[in-house]
Amino acid sequence: MNEGDMEDRDSASDAAWEEARGRLFRPAPPPTRAETEAFTQRVLARIPEEAPAWTPSRWLMPSLAFSAAALALSLALPARDEDAADVASAWAAAPLGAEDVLGYTLEDL
């Protein structure tokens, strides 16, 4: 006799309930293996394929490419700044005289 049967004897259930139980609860035949397999496949089909938060195969190459581009840019930019500085210094080296500025201003008028 299992624990459940002992518990039932302690409860208020009696012969009437035992008979009622026989009439009310006849377990349905369990699903067949094929039904269970079909059910399992339906459940799996509804589970989304979840990619981990960080997937190397997905992010590694773009990350490396971006890093390389950033490095190349950082190496290239100082050279362009130098070019720009050269132009600016050339202009600065040949400032307009006050007379020139006055002349241009009068021409505009």
Partner: peptide, 8 residues
């Protein structure tokens, strides 16, 4: 019928 009536 499939609920709780096996074996009859």
């Amino acid at each position: 019928e499939s609920v709780q009536a096996g074996g009859r």
